[in-house]
Design a protein around this nucleic acid. Structure first.
Length: 496
RNA sequence: GCCUCCAUCGUCUAGGGGACUAGGACGCAACCCUUUCAAGGUUAAAACGGGAGUUCGAAUCUCCCUGGAGGUGCCA
């Protein structure tokens, strides 16, 4: 196996909202590459946009990442040697770098008002030109600009992109990306409020934090040449660029957006990472699922733990094509990972869902129930609908459920009564003692097993679909089982 | 509109000029197992967007078209 150099990578979300699936995957891949190469994974908060800042977002991002099992060696919460890790703590620093660019002639002050800019843009659109700054302030003498600033005029700082030739940047998943320089706008890098924009701040940070690989979403490809030009203007080393494919809506039409998320929640899905907790998904499953969208290992391996992912991960198996997310596949992964859990683990993970449903489920019982519901669950919350009857004092079966196909209420009542008689004589009810006796009864009555056991199942569990009957009865205990059968008989009689 | 990226079953994908009769997974269908529901097992249906070219040979390389996506903010 080839020896890979330790990387320094970063996940740099902006705290403007909730962490979604795409962000989670970007963070995951960064983490995976760092772990795999014995490198460093850094969390950086890009909060220079004061207007869109959401106070709770940083915590949500951290919680979501931790839930997936991702941790970092440097970040706003854990510190590190290359901080600060929050961009709002570095305003003056970005400013200083912007000034350097101006001194070098790679950037300039621009005094154009937003009104003029808007008009200009409109005119350009009319002429079917690509929208770009027309360069009015581009060649303003620096002295004059400084005087205007002293006089109190408002200004921004723009990067001076070359207007001739082409720029080529190499992306590790797509190869070379070439654009004509005239199509790269003179982007604003410092706003009139003095704050640096992403294009400047992120490049400064990546350089100062010695980032070796920038793994980010492909929505950054259009500005990649700009970033390349900025780095080159400073004379810095360029990181390796890795642009990840986008996540598309399940129908493949357009990228994920918040609009649809409310709709999704109704179906038990979400695009926000932390929602999956209450939806009953395992972090193992979500990780496995998102890891396999845009990346693959070989032509048949699909089930991975986080550690296995670390081992298997490689940037050259990244796929440039956008991927439509597929929630039914998530369901599949969740089922697989639930079945991989130990009984103790499953019991512990299912417990909060019982609590939320107002059911006081004790650990001992949970441990007994876990094995018989394990292979029947897709999501953890289903444990409640599947096994709630174990904990309820009473069960209220519906007559229509009690009555089996091809039988009358009276016949079913009789089945229940005869079953009661058989079970009553037993010292206890379970798979060993109980099932043989009941099978004998089935033969004696000349009925199908499904009919007899069907009556019993609904009587004891209150539902048509349940975990295995005799295992269930064993856990419930003889006394309760008999009481429930008795009640079922009453229900059937009154419906006869 | 303009710029850029992308293109294999419905979806996620394997594929790197001959090993392709295009493989796996989800989902779907059938069957087996079965007291329900699952899980499991077996099987089936299902794709190289179109056209040129390069080559003895193209899903793989090139070009064009088409389609899709992203960007086009004093957001990130």
């Amino acid at each position: 196996m080839e020896k890979i150099k330790p990387v320094r990578v970063r996940f740099a979300p902006s705290p403007t909202g909730r962490l979604h699936l795409g962000g989670g995957r970007t963070a995951l891949y960064n983490y995976l590459l760092a772990k795999k190469t014995g490198g460093m994974f850094i969390l950086r908060i890009e909060d220079t946009d004061q207007k869109r800042y959401v106070a709770s977002a940083e915590k949500e991002i951290i919680d979501g990442l931790h839930w997936l099992g991702i941790d970092w060696q440097e970040g706003p919460d854990v510190g590190g040697d290359y901080g600060p890790y929050r961009q709002t703590d570095k305003k003056a620093l970005y400013r200083q770098y912007a000034e350097q660019l101006i001194e070098q002639g790679d950037a300039y002050y621009c005094f154009c008002s937003s009104e003029r800019l808007a008009e200009m843009k409109q005119a350009q659109q009319k002429r079917k030109e690509f929208p770009h700054y027309d360069g009015r302030c581009r060649d303003l003498p620096l002295e004059e600009a400084r005087k205007r600033i002293e006089a109190g005029e408002k200004y921004v700082i723009r990067f001076k992109t070359p207007k001739e030739g082409t720029t080529t940047v190499r992306d590790l998943v797509r190869g070379e990306i070439t654009v004509e320089n005239r199509t790269i706008d003179d982007y604003i890098i410092v706003k009139s409020d003095g704050w640096a924009l992403y294009h400047l701040a992120a490049m400064v940070d990546d350089h100062m934090m010695k980032i070796s690989h920038v793994i980010r979403g492909s929505e950054w490809i259009p500005t990649l040449p700009l970033h390349h030009l900025i780095i080159r203007a400073f004379g810095w080393d360029e990181p390796e660029w890795v642009h990840l494919s986008l996540f598309l809506k399940p129908d493949g039409k357009g990228k994920l957006s918040k609009r649809e998320s409310a709709e999704l929640m109704k179906d038990g899905y979400s695009i926000f990472l932390t929602d999956f907790i209450e939806l009953g998904y395992l972090p193992e499953a979500v990780t496995n699922w998102i890891a396999l969208m845009g990346w693959s290992y070989d032509d048949h391996t699909e089930i991975f733990t986080l550690d296995e992912l670390v081992n298997a991960f490689s940037v050259d198996h990244l796929n440039p094509a956008p991927a439509a997310i597929n929630f039914t596949k998530l369901d599949h992964f969740n089922g697989v990972h639930i079945r991989r859990l130990t009984i103790e683990d499953l019991a512990a993970r299912v417990k909060p869902f019982f609590e939320k449903a107002g059911i006081d489920a004790d650990d001992a019982a949970l441990l007994k129930i876990a094995p018989i519901i394990q292979e029947r669950m897709v999501t953890l919350d289903e444990a409640v609908s599947l096994a709630g009857f174990f904990f309820r004092d009473e069960v209220n079966p519906k007559a229509e459920d009690l009555i089996q196909k091809g039988l009358t209420a009276g016949q079913c009542a009789e089945i229940a009564e005869k079953s009661y008689a058989v079970l009553e004589k037993l010292p206890a009810i379970g798979v060993e003692v109980g099932e043989p006796e009941m099978r004998a009864l089935v033969a004696e009555l000349g009925l199908k097993p499904a009919q007899v056991f069907g009556v019993l199942r609904v009587a004891v569990t209150g539902q048509r679909v349940s975990p295995p009957l005799f295992e269930s009865m064993e856990i419930i205990g003889k006394e309760t089982v008999l009481a429930r059968i008795k009640k079922a008989v009453e229900i059937l009689r009154s419906n006869a």
